[in-house]
C-alpha cells in the first residue's frame, strides 16, 4: 500500500488502478515474515496427521479414523481440524495487521490521506485478508493431497466415501476442492468480522483476542443444551459440515446453509468496516 501514494501524484489521476492496488497489497502481505511462517506451519498439519494415522495401529472414530488407508480424506480431515482454531487465527492475524496494525505503526494515516476512496481502501484490505486465508487453505489442501497419497496411501488413488462407495482420483480431488472452497467461505466471514474489529481499534492484539474469544464463546454457547435455539445464529455451528463431502451422493444442505450464514457474517463485518472507515479521522 505504500506505493499508492506515489502513483497518484499526477493531477489528472484521482485514483490508482485497482489492479495495481491489489497487487501492491498482496506483495505487502506476503512480505511479512509472519505470514510466510504461518503458511509453512500450516503445511505441517496434514503431514503430522498423516504420520499420526500411519503410526497408530487402530482406527479411531470420526474423520481421522476414516483417513487410515484412504489418503484423499486426509486434506478434508486436516482442513476440518484447522478450521476449528488455526485457520481463523491466521485470518484474524492478517485482518489485525490490515487496519489496526497500520494504525499502530502510524501508516494508516498516510493511507487515509491518500487520494483513494475509503471504500476502495476497505476493499483492498479485505482482498489482502482473503488472499492470506486462501493461501492457508490451499497449502493445507495441496500438502494434504500429497501427504495423503505418499504417506497414507490409498488403493489405486481412490477415495472411499463414508457411504461405502469408491470415487476415482479426479472426483476425490473435486471433493477436496469443494471442502476447500467452503472453508474459504467460512474464513471470509471470520476475516470480515476481524476486519471490523480491526477498524475499531488501534491495537492488533485486540483483534486477535476478540476473534479467538468469540470462537471460544461460540463453542461454549453451542455446548449448553438450554441454548439450542441459539445454534443457527452461531457461525461455528456448521463447521463440521465438511464430513458431508465424504458422503455419496454428496449432501450439500449443511454446507449450503453454513455458507449462507457465513455470507451474512461477512456482510455484517464488511458493512461495519466501511461505516467505521468513512467516519474515521485521518
Amino acid at each position: 500500500m505504500t506505493a499508492v501514494a506515489e502513483t497518484a501524484v499526477g493531477p489528472e489521476r484521482t485514483a490508482a488502478p485497482l489492479g495495481r492496488l491489489l497487487a501492491a497489497e498482496v506483495r505487502w502481505v506476503f512480505r511479512r515474515p509472519r505470514t510466510l511462517i504461518t503458511l509453512g506451519l500450516f503445511a505441517l498439519i496434514p503431514v503430522l496427521v498423516a504420520v499420526g494415522v500411519v503410526v497408530a495401529d487402530r482406527n479411531g472414530p470420526g474423520l481421522i479414523g476414516a483417513v487410515a488407508g484412504n489418503g484423499l480424506v486426509l486434506p478434508i480431515a486436516a482442513l476440518t481440524l484447522a478450521l476449528a482454531l488455526l485457520l481463523p487465527l491466521a485470518t484474524a492475524m492478517a485482518a489485525a495487521d490490515a487496519l489496526a496494525g497500520e494504525a499502530a505503526h502510524g501508516t494508516l494515516r498516510g493511507l487515509l490521506l491518500a487520494p483513494v476512496s475509503r471504500v476502495r481502501l476497505v476493499g483492498v484490505k479485505a482482498f489482502g485478508v482473503l488472499v492470506v486465508a486462501a493461501a492457508a487453505v490451499l497449502v493445507i489442501a495441496v500438502v494434504g493431497v500429497l501427504a495423503g497419497m505418499v504417506v497414507v496411501g490409498s488403493a489405486d488413488g481412490q477415495m472411499v466415501t463414508l457411504s461405502g462407495t469408491t470415487l476415482g482420483f479426479g472426483e476425490g480431488v473435486a471433493r477436496v476442492g469443494l471442502v476447500a472452497v467452503w472453508v474459504l467461505g467460512q474464513l471470509a466471514a471470520v476475516g470480515a468480522v476481524a476486519l471490523a474489529v480491526s477498524s475499531l481499534t488501534e491495537h492488533p492484539l485486540v483483534v486477535l483476542a476478540s476473534v479467538l474469544g468469540g470462537l471460544i464463546a461460540f463453542g461454549v454457547l453451542s455446548a449448553i443444551p438450554a441454548l439450542d435455539w441459539l445454534q443457527p445464529w452461531l457461525l461455528t455451528s456448521g463447521w463440521t459440515a465438511a464430513t458431508d463431502a465424504l458422503r455419496d451422493p454428496v449432501a450439500l444442505d449443511a454446507m449450503g446453509s453454513s455458507t449462507v450464514r457465513a455470507l451474512c457474517y461477512a456482510a455484517i463485518g464488511l458493512g461495519i468496516t466501511v461505516w467505521r472507515m468513512q467516519r474515521r479521522d485521518a
Partner: peptide, 22 residues
C-alpha cells in the same frame, strides 16, 4: 457510503435471522 455500510451490516443481521429462524 457510511449509510451504505451500516445498511449492509443491518442486512447481514436480518439475513442471519432469516436463516436462523425456521
Amino acid at each position: 457510503w457510511a449509510r451504505i455500510g451500516s445498511g449492509v451490516a443491518v442486512a447481514g443481521v436480518v439475513g442471519l435471522g432469516l436463516v436462523a429462524i425456521p
